[in-house]
Amino acid sequence: MKKTTTILILLLLSFSFNLISQEDMMDMFDDGPTTNYTYATFKTTRISLGQSVENPADGNLIFDIQHHFGRINDGAYEFFGLDQATLRLGLQYGITDWLAVGIGRSSFEKTYDGSVKAKIFRQSTGAINMPVSISYFGNIGINSLKLTDTIRKNDFSARLSYTNQLLIARKFSSAISIQLTPTFIHRNLVETKADDNDVWAMGAGGRFKLTKRISLNLEYYYIISKQTAKDFNDSFTVGFDIETGGHVFQLFFTNSRGIIEQHFIPRTTGDWLKGDIHFGFNISRTFVLKKPKEFRD
C-alpha cells in the first residue's frame, strides 16, 4: 500500500514537472513590453470617396479604377444613370510603409492629379501607446479642358487646385473604425465671384464590419465655408467594402459626381433628398514591385 502511494506521488510529481517546465519554458521567451501597432483600420487607401489612413505597402503599386455613374433619378431612359460615368484611372505607389505617391486622371474637367500621403503617427498599444493614427494627404489637380473663355487672360495657374488633409483615425474594435478629416482646399480659379477660392471642410467617416468580409462605410464632408455651401451640397456617401480573397471591391451610393477631393468636397451638386444619387465603385489591382526580403532570392 505504502509503495503504491509513493509511486503514485512520484508519478504525479513527474507529470506536474513536465507541465510546470513547459510553462516555465514559455516564460523564457518574454522580453518585456513590445509595441503592438494597429493594422487594417480601413481596408483600402480610401474609405469610399475620400482618403483613409491606409497607405499602399512598401513596394506595392496599386492601379485604381474608379467610377461614379450618373444619377439614379435620371430614370429608365438613362438606365438609372448607368449610361453616363465619371471615370478616374490612377496609380499609387508605396515608397516606404509610411510614404506614398500617386498620379491619376479624372474625366471630370479632364483633370490630372498628383498626390502624396504620409503617415505621421500610428495607433498602437504596449510600449508605445498612441490612441490614433494621423496621416497627411496633399494633392494638386490640373484641369486640362480646352480654353473657351476668350475674354479672360488664361494663365496656367488658373488650372490648378490643391487639397490638404489631416487624416485622424482610430480603430475602436475589429468591427468599428472612425476617421475625422479636417480639409483645406484652394482653387486658383472658381466659377463665380460668389464662390470661395479657399474652402474649409470637416470630413467624418467610418467603417463598420457587418460580416467578416463585408463592411458598411459611411462618409460625410461638412463644408465650413458658407458661400460655397450655399451653392453646393455636402458630400455624403454610403458604401460597402467587399473582400473576395485577394481583392477588395468598394461599391457605394453618393450625391457626388467628382472623384478627387477638390471635385467632390466643394463641388457636389446632388441632393440625396431629391434622389440625386450616383452609384459608383472602386476596384484596384496591386502589383508587388519590391518583394518582402523573405521572398527575394
Partner: peptide, 10 residues
C-alpha cells in the same frame, strides 16, 4: 510575412 500585403492583412 506574405508576398502580398493585402493577403497578410486578410
Amino acid at each position: 510575412i506574405f508576398e502580398k500585403a493585402l493577403m497578410q492583412e486578410h
